[in-house]
Nucleic acid binder design. Structure first.
Lengths: 135, 135
DNA sequence: CAGTATCCCCTTCGATACTG
DNA sequence: CAGTATCGAAGGGGATACTG
């Protein structure tokens, strides 16, 4: 996304770091899963990989790096063999955590209603214009 | 190791509406902007288009449809000329709204710290491996 | 164990143009 | 006003293979 017209003069941090981008990083589906999964304490790479259903190693790494860069996660490497890397939430991220769990709990509570809403919407669309992708 | 093993995944994904997908729809950057912008009352298409900085008409339409399909927005067409379409949050979405504003306020509060964290991270990486992230 | 690197598909998104 | 249609560029994301 490129800024089309911006109030360029004053807040440099706002320029370097648009709100929408922060939200995008923090509220992406993998970010949320990672932050929630990492909240209960130091967590290792493979733990995350196993506990987050459907994430690939690549996506996990990418998101981990981005969250670390944004100051939401700390990454601690223990110079042992085999290597051991632990991730923790920063205090900033711990503050975020309650909103995220609120969101996740909301999603759990309403998952059923949403599924129903979709079915209803799809059948309405089918009745209206009789052109649905094959079931 | 199944302590803190979340029971939300396996059998639920068998259903049509995985949790991660719900979260993705509801917490995407445009979805959040739209839901927050639509919270204060009936809002029209062009109002949204103008109030959400950086969104394209296409993205607005796509996200609006998806939110409507998921049962988070109602779309009311007034058969006048010129046409008038109003969007409202459903009660389900109104419940979501507090978490979303919490998130947005968090992002506003910490935008500066995040920008700093990025700068720090980037200079550390540059010092460590003399290789900048791809421009 | 904890990643990187590479290939490649497929979705996302912006730009633009057209319509009821 | 409130969309829909189409195109082409960008990059998200999976599969796989390799490394310190």
């Amino acid at each position: 996304m490129s800024r089309s017209h911006t109030h360029v003069s004053q807040e440099v941090t706002a320029q370097a770091c648009p709100l929408v981008e922060v939200i995008d990083h923090v509220a992406g589906k993998w970010s949320i899963s990672i932050l929630v999964a990492a909240a209960h304490g130091p967590v290792r790479f493979t733990e995350l990989e196993r506990s987050i259903e459907g994430i690939s190693r690549r996506m996990l790494t990418l998101n981990l790096r981005r969250l670390e860069r944004d100051g939401l996660l700390t990454r601690t490497v223990h110079p042992t063999v085999p290597p051991k890397v632990e991730y923790n939430l920063t205090s900033m991220a711990r503050e975020l955590h309650s909103y995220l769990t609120g969101l996740v709990e909301w999603a759990e509570r309403h998952r059923g209603s949403i599924a129903q809403a979709r079915t209803a919407y799809d059948s309405t669309a089918a009745a209206t214009q009789a052109g649905q992708p094959h079931p």
